[in-house]
Nucleic acid binder design. Structure first.
Length: 571
RNA sequence: GCCCCAGUAGCUCAAUGGAUAGAGCGCCUGACUUCGAAUCAGUAGGUUGGGGGUUCGAGUCCCUCCUGGGGCGCCA
C-alpha cells in the first residue's frame, strides 16, 4: 500500500537528514500517516515533525523542511509541502493516480485485498444462538458483524472459517424439548400444560402441529421421557434448519456447525478437564468443582502479555461441574476453546458476543492462559444490544418471554441488503435503537441504495455504450485529468486501506461509510463528465472514461460484496 | 456497591491524539428535450453531557460527577 511506502519514505528521509547533520541524533518516533480531512492538505499527511520538536530542539516547521529536502520522489509523489504548524503534506501525482485505473482493471475482484494475515488461520464464530427459537433481530446484528468481519479478514489475507456453535445440550434444550412435547400433545387434543420456564412462543405451537401431522400419535405411545428425548432430536433438527434458512435469507452461510454435545462425545472435554485438574486449576468445594482464578496473578505476573482487550483479570472462581455432576455452560466453553486452538489448531479464534455476555470474557481469557495458550489468540467482539421499538413503543423481547421480533420478519419487510447495511453502519460499541415501524418506512431511503444505484448506473452506461458500438478497447487512462475523475480514482484506491483498517480494528462499520463516499465521488463525476458521446472529438476521452467507470464498478462491487450486499446491474 | 459500554447538529450515527468536528435523514434554494433525478450543486444547523487534568495539540487519554444500557448465579 502507498501508505506503507510513504511511512518508509519519511523514515528514510529523517535518518538521512540526521546523517547529513541537518537534524540532531535521536531515536526515530513512530511515523504515522493519515488522510487529511481537508482536500487542500493533500492526499496524505504526517504530523511526525510536531512530535520531534522537543527531541530535535527545533521548530517543527524547520524540521519538516529539512526532512522534505531529503525525501526521495518516487513516481507516485506529486508534490510535498510543509504546512504550519509542522505537517508534511503529500499529494499523489495525477499521472500515477490515473494509472491506478489499469491496476484495478487487472486485479478485478481481488482489488482491495491486503496481506495482513499471511495465510494464518482464523475462526470467526458468530450468531451461535440457542436453537430453541427463531433468530431475533439481535442475532441479526451478531450475524452481520461476524459475517462481514469474516469477509474482511479473508480479504486481509487470513484463512477464515465461519462457525456456528450449537448449544444442543443443557437446561435450555431440555426446556425446549419439554415445551415441544406439550405443544405436540396439545395438537393431538391432549390437555398437556407447558412446563414452568418453558418456551411460550407460537413457533412451537406450529412445530407441534407439524410433527403431529407428520408422525401422528407415535410419540404419545412412548414413555414420556423417551418421547421427550425423541422430540428433542426432531425439534433440534427442525429448529436448526429454520435458523439456517433465516441466516441464509440474510446472506449468511457457515462452513461448520459445531455441536456442544460433541465436545463431550469426542472426549475433548475430558482431555481439557484432566489437564486443568492435574495442573491444579480446579478445586473441589461445596460439592462442586471450580476453576480457580487466584492462581493467575502469581502465574504470569510481569510476563508482559499485551492483551488485545484490556480486560480486568477474573477475580472470582467459577463453577465448572455442579454438585449434581452436570457440567456448566462454562465447562463447555473451556473444552471449546481447547478444541479451537489446540485440537483444530486455529491461530486465532474470534467470538462475536452480545454485551450481555461481557462478564464471561475475563474467565475465558483466564482459562486460555491456564491451558498454557497465549490469551491474545482469543478475541471477543462485544456488540451492544439492540433495543426494539414498534411505533415508538418499547418491545421487551426474548425467546423465553415469547414476544419476538424475528430476523426473518425484518428481512422480509425491508430486504437483506438494507437490513445488513443498517445493522452494519453503527460501530459495535454503540447501542442501537431500532423502531421496526420506522425502519420499514425509511427503508427506501437507506443509504445502501445510494451505493447500489452507483453500481447500477455504471451497468446502464455499458448497456448504452454497447448499443452505440462504443468500447473501452485502447483507452488511454492518462487522459483522466479532470478534477472529478481524479477525485473518483482517489476514492477508489482507498479500498485496501479501508480493508486494513477494518481488519486491524475488527470494526467493519468503516466499510459502510467508505461505500457512501465512494458512491458520492462517482455520482459527482457522472454529473460533470460525459462518458459516452457521439462527438468525434470525444472518442479517445470516452474510451478512457469507460475504463474509469468499469474500474469504479469493480471497486463498488468489491466494497458491497465485502459487506455481503448485492451489487445490482439494474434496480 | 463494584465492573464494562455509550452520551457529538432536530433525528440516526462517523471521526488511527492532529489542521476549520463530518455524513445520511429532515428543513430551505437551485439543476432533467444528450449515458438512469434512487442523482447533482448549494444554504442553515455544534459550548462533542458538566467540571478538572495531561499534551505543542483532546470528541479521542487520566480523574470526578450526571444520564442511559449491560454485567456481577452451582442461568444460558
Amino acid at each position: 500500500m502507498i501508505r506503507d511506502d510513504l511511512t518508509q519514505l519519511i523514515e528514510r528521509a529523517i535518518k538521512k537528514a540526521q546523517k547529513k547533520g541537518d537534524l540532531p541524533q535521536f531515536d526515530l518516533p513512530e511515523v504515522t500517516i493519515e488522510r487529511p480531512k481537508e482536500a487542500a492538505h493533500g492526499d496524505y499527511a504526517t504530523p511526525v515533525c510536531l512530535g520531534m520538536a522537543r527531541l530535535a530542539r527545533m521548530a517543527p516547521v524547520r524540521i519538516a523542511e529539512r526532512v522534505v529536502a531529503r525525501m526521495d520522489r518516487p513516481d507516485f509523489i506529486g508534490s510535498v509541502a510543509v504546512a504550519h504548524p509542522g505537517f508534511i503534506n503529500v499529494t499523489l501525482s495525477d499521472a500515477w493516480v490515473a494509472a491506478q485505473v489499469e491496476t484495478i482493471l487487472q486485479e478485478r475482484e481481488r482489488f482491495g485485498h491486503v496481506n495482513l494475515g499471511g495465510g494464518r488461520r482464523v475462526q470467526v464464530e458468530y450468531i451461535s444462538a440457542n436453537p430453541t427459537g427463531p433468530l431475533t433481530i439481535g442475532s441479526g446484528r451478531n450475524a452481520v458483524l461476524g459475517d462481514t468481519l469474516a469477509n474482511v479478514l479473508a480479504a486481509a489475507g487470513w484463512q477464515v472459517q465461519r462457525e456456528f456453535y450449537v448449544n444442543d445440550m443443557g437446561t435450555q434444550i431440555e426446556l425446549f424439548a419439554a415445551s415441544l412435547y406439550a405443544r405436540y400433545a396439545q395438537a393431538l387434543g391432549h390437555d398437556e400444560p407447558l412446563p414452568e420456564e418453558g418456551y411460550p412462543g407460537g413457533y412451537l405451537v406450529e412445530m407441534g402441529k407439524e410433527i403431529a401431522a407428520e408422525f401422528g400419535d407415535r410419540f404419545l405411545r412412548m414413555e414420556r421421557d423417551e418421547a421427550i428425548r425423541a422430540l428433542r432430536a426432531e425439534g433440534l433438527t427442525r429448529m436448526l434448519a429454520s435458523i439456517k434458512a433465516d441466516a441464509g435469507a440474510l446472506g449468511v452461510h457457515f462452513d461448520h456447525w459445531k455441536s456442544e454435545q460433541s465436545l463431550y462425545d469426542d472426549s475433548v472435554y475430558g482431555t481439557v478437564f484432566n489437564k486443568l485438574s492435574s495442573e491444579g486449576w480446579l478445586v473441589h468445594r461445596e460439592g462442586a468443582i471450580w476453576f480457580r482464578s487466584d492462581l493467575e496473578d502469581r502465574q504470569d505476573s510481569g510476563s508482559g502479555d499485551e492483551d488485545r482487550q484490556r480486560e480486568k483479570r477474573e477475580d472470582k472462581d467459577n463453577v465448572v461441574v455442579r454438585s449434581d455432576g452436570r457440567p456448566t455452560y462454562f465447562a463447555s466453553d473451556i473444552a471449546y476453546v481447547g478444541d479451537k486452538l489446540v485440537i483444530r489448531g486455529f491461530d486465532w479464534a474470534i467470538y462475536v458476543w452480545g454485551a450481555d455476555h461481557h462478564g464471561h470474557v475475563s474467565r475465558m481469557k483466564a482459562v486460555t492462559r491456564a491451558l498454557g495458550l497465549d490469551p491474545n489468540r482469543v478475541t471477543f467482539i462485544l456488540y451492544q444490544l439492540v433495543t426494539l421499538k414498534r411505533g415508538g413503543e418499547l418491545v421487551r423481547m426474548g425467546k423465553r418471554t415469547g414476544e419476538i421480533i424475528t430476523l426473518r420478519e425484518v428481512v422480509e419487510e425491508i430486504g437483506a441488503d438494507a437490513t445488513r447495511f443498517m445493522l452494519l453502519t453503527r460501530s459495535a460499541d454503540s447501542q442501537m435503537e431500532l423502531d421496526l415501524t420506522l425502519a420499514v418506512q425509511q427503508s427506501s431511503e437507506n443509504p445502501v441504495y445510494y451505493v447500489q444505484y452507483g453500481h447500477a448506473r455504471i451497468a446502464s452506461i455499458f448497456r448504452y455504450a454497447r448499443e452505440r458500438g462504443v468500447s473501452l478497447e485502447g483507452g488511454d487512462v492518462s487522459l483522466l485529468t479532470h478534477p472529478a475523475e481524479q477525485a473518483l480514482i482517489r476514492q477508489m484506491i482507498r479500498l485496501p486501506e479501508v480493508v486494513a483498517l477494518c481488519a486491524e480494528t475488527l470494526s467493519p462499520h468503516h466499510l459502510t461509510h467508505y461505500a457512501q463516499e465512494l458512491a458520492s465521488a462517482f455520482h459527482s463525476f457522472y454529473k460533470e463528465c460525459r462518458v459516452v458521446s457521439d462527438d468525434p472529438a470525444h472518442t479517445e476521452l470516452g474510451k478512457a472514461r469507460l475504463k474509469l467507470v468499469l474500474a469504479a464498478k469493480t471497486v463498488l462491487a468489491n466494497t458491497l460484496h465485502l459487506m455481503g450486499v448485492s451489487a445490482p446491474e439494474a434496480m
